[in-house]
Design a protein around this nucleic acid. Structure first.
Lengths: 145, 145
DNA sequence: TTAAACAGGATAAAATTACTCCTATTTGGT
DNA sequence: ACCAAATAGGAGTAATTTTATCCTGTTTAA
């Protein structure tokens, strides 16, 4: 019942990219280094984010990756579901027929509500908002010393 | 980001026990059979529930297991956390120092809120309530035919 | 032509999950 | 005393998932 490293890394990378103006081009190795993400692992995650049309890339010298969608229109939920698959708190919520109790199971409903609530929370703020808040927090922390 | 079979099985078993009057003694093999749970696996889960003082057991012929705590005072969250460990949606919420961004990370807060909300939902109904609702649902389903 | 960048497939190591098995130990009944 | 029925608990194992790494392309600017 926990975010995997894929989700963690993807969020870090995307938050980093969403902190810069739209259109900025990043090198994967740079993002990896600045966010403590294994380089080759991040490449795989980036591939998924590109296939999902959240990022775009250009190859060759001077190439790199950049946001395809505006940061205002990306949520943590989007990112997580791309690299980890759709959120499903309980198997019976995604695998139809997993459990023959679906019809009457009172716990099923609890999971359904919990999941709706979780997904709502994870899309309640855009990556842009989160990136802005992040730099503001960072600014405050630095000014303490 | 999903309940494991341990959690699933433990919930099934407990819901089954909470449907009967307090004090009822059950055989593990019976619970396993009636709820599609591998017998030897359930034994391990029961051991954990006993150590956590949710169940008690008596050995020997005529022995078995029974609720130690009243079903009104047990929540799904209790059960899940016993067999799966404390819920931690993100590593940084349980492993202090996992990520050096804690101070300022805006996503950390999202996870914190999401987790609080999830835990609240998972303890919003007692196993007694859920068991009652279950038998009522079952009754309705049967009466359709 | 070369060096810098991403693309993608295969594979491997580590961790976790989902079990099983075997040997106690306890207890009621004969 | 003995047996059968029940849980106790440790060890081990198979399957799956996670967390990567590596290697061989392909693209492109200079």
């Amino acid at each position: 019942m926990q975010l995997t490293m894929s989700g963690e890394y993807a969020l870090r990378a995307m938050l980093y990219m969403c902190s810069e103006p739209h259109g900025t081009v990043f090198k994967i190795s740079d993002i990896a280094q600045k966010n403590d993400i294994p380089d080759s692992f991040l490449r795989k995650l980036v591939q998924q984010l590109i296939r999902a049309d959240l990022l775009k890339s250009s190859q060759g010298k001077g190439g790199g990756i950049s946001l395809k969608v505006e940061a205002e229109n990306i949520t943590p939920l989007d990112i997580i579901e791309i690299v980890e698959g759709k959120i499903g708190l309980n198997k019976c919520l995604i695998q139809n027929g997993f459990c023959n109790r679906d019809n009457y199971c009172s716990i099923h409903i609890v999971w359904e509500e919990a999941q709706t609530q979780l997904k709502d929370k994870l899309r309640s703020k855009s990556m842009k908002e989160l990136a802005l808040q992040n730099s503001q927090n960072l600014h405050n922390v630095n000014n303490l010393f």
